[in-house]
Structures are given as C-alpha cells and as structure tokens.
C-alpha cells in the first residue's frame, strides 16, 4: 500500500494546505542546495520526528518505496564502477549514494503532505494559487482524476484477470499491451462520457462557493520557517 490521505488531528493536518505546499518546496530546495552530509542528518531527524507525530512507521514507508530503493542502489553501484583499474571508485559511489539518500528523504517529505491533506483542500489551494478559470478548470480536472482513478483501476484489474484466464499471457508483449489498452480505454471513455453529462446536469459553474481557507498562528510560524530554509538554499547557491 502506498501512502494516502488519512483523516487526523495532528499539527500537520491542521496546517493550511498552502502552508504545507510552500514548506515542502522550501525543504526540497534546501535539501538539494546543500551537498554535504550534515544538513541531511538534520533533515533525517526532522523527517523521523514528522513520521512519529503522524504515527507512521519508517520501515513501513521504506517498504512502500522498494522499487525506488532498488533503483537508487543500482545507481550508486553503477556510479562507482570504473572500466579499468581500480574498477571501483568509492568516492564517486558515495557521492551518488548521498544524493540517492537525499532523494529518499525528499520523497518522504512529500508523503507527509499526502498523508495529511485531503484532495479537496489541495483543490482549494490550487484555485487560490492559480486564479480565474484556469485555476477552476485545473481544480475540477484534478477532482475528476480522483473520481476516475479507482474506477479505471478496477476495470484494469478485471481486464488483466480476464486476459490471464483466456491465455493472454501467451501473447507477445505488444499484443498484450494493445488488447489491454483498448479495453481499458473503451471502458474509460464510456464512464467519462456519462460523467460529462452528469457534471452538466449538476450545474458545474465557473463561480462556485469555494471552500474557505484560513491561516492560523501555526501557519505563519511555518511560513517563516520555510522562508528561512529558502534563504539558506539561495545563500548556498551564491
């Protein structure tokens, strides 16, 4: 299971989605700006604290990231390999290794937002961030993606099972992709056409009542913290 939104009452749940978006960007910028290990130790501690506040097990999180970890490990090894003596450069491997570790931290920082922010709050933040009809269109489409995903996934699973039962695994890869793709696409288009009718019937408008967003004291604190990180990031680049 990948990380997904869970309702809760933690500090992170209470922060405004705009604050959380801003802080993520600031943390990621700072993480990428600093290449030495010490700041990474700081970020590691911050991430572990955040996970414990959210009651998420770091091991469980790592388990959901297995494919990424495998890829990053291979990258680290490949970065060290030399053609010709001495065949392996520890310095190169450790540089990529540290970078790979930083990527893992960055991904987990994103998980904190994902775990604590319902789509609806993010939609409201999007509409605030991107004003006018473009923002409205973006929020509506993102909401629709959230509705379509579970339906399409169910369809996709059903089709895979049906193909397997009828010997589909003996087909060549590209035939399998084609058969699978066309059936999923056809089902998706049917669902989407009816949903389009439903959205019109339910009076989709450009100027709806928007969910209210408001900054609290905690938000201002977090925004200042983010500013500080951004300042550090910019300073290290200059």
């Amino acid at each position: 299971m990948s990380v997904a939104y869970r309702p809760g009452e933690t500090v992170f749940h209470r922060l405004d989605p705009r604050t959380k978006l801003w802080c993520q960007v600031a943390i990621v910028a700072a993480a990428y700006a600093y290449t030495d290990p010490l700041p990474l130790v700081g970020l590691t501690i911050a991430v572990l604290v955040a996970l414990s506040v959210l009651d998420l097990s770091p091991w469980r999180i790592l388990a959901t990231m297995r494919p990424v970890i495998v890829l990053l490990t291979i990258a680290t090894v490949v970065a060290g390999v030399r053609i010709g003596s001495p065949w392996f450069s520890l310095a190169d491997a450790s540089e990529t290794g540290i970078a790979a570790y930083r990527v893992l931290l960055v991904i987990v920082v994103g998980f904190v937002y994902v775990h604590t922010t319902p789509t609806r709050a993010s939609q409201a933040a999007l509409q605030w961030l991107v004003p006018g009809r473009i923002g409205r269109g973006l929020a509506v489409s993102v909401g629709l993606v959230g509705r379509f995903l579970p339906r399409f996934q169910t369809t996709a699973r059903r089709i895979r099972d049906a193909m397997a039962i009828r010997g589909g695994d003996r087909m060549s890869l590209h035939r399998r992709i084609a058969v699978f793709g066309i059936v999923v696409l056809a089902a998706a288009v049917r669902d989407a056409d009816r949903t389009s009718v439903a959205m019109r019937t339910r009076c989709l408008s450009w100027n709806p009542t928007l969910p209210s967003l408001s900054f609290g004291r905690l938000d201002y604190l977090a925004i200042v913290l983010g500013l500080g990180l951004c300042f550090l990031a910019i300073r290290s680049l200059l």
Partner: peptide, 26 residues
C-alpha cells in the same frame, strides 16, 4: 493535470506513489 494530481497526493505516479517529493526526485 496528471503531474498536479500526483503532486497533491493522488496515487498516479509509478507504483501508485504520489507527492511533490516524487515529482522532484531522480
């Protein structure tokens, strides 16, 4: 829209992951 949906937490990136961190990963 796909990238934005993934960034805000819908499980659309490879293997159902999501978040700005994945968007800004390797």
């Amino acid at each position: 829209v796909y990238l934005v949906a993934g960034a805000i937490g819908l499980p659309v990136f490879s293997m159902g992951q999501s978040g700005i961190g994945v968007l800004l990963s390797e």
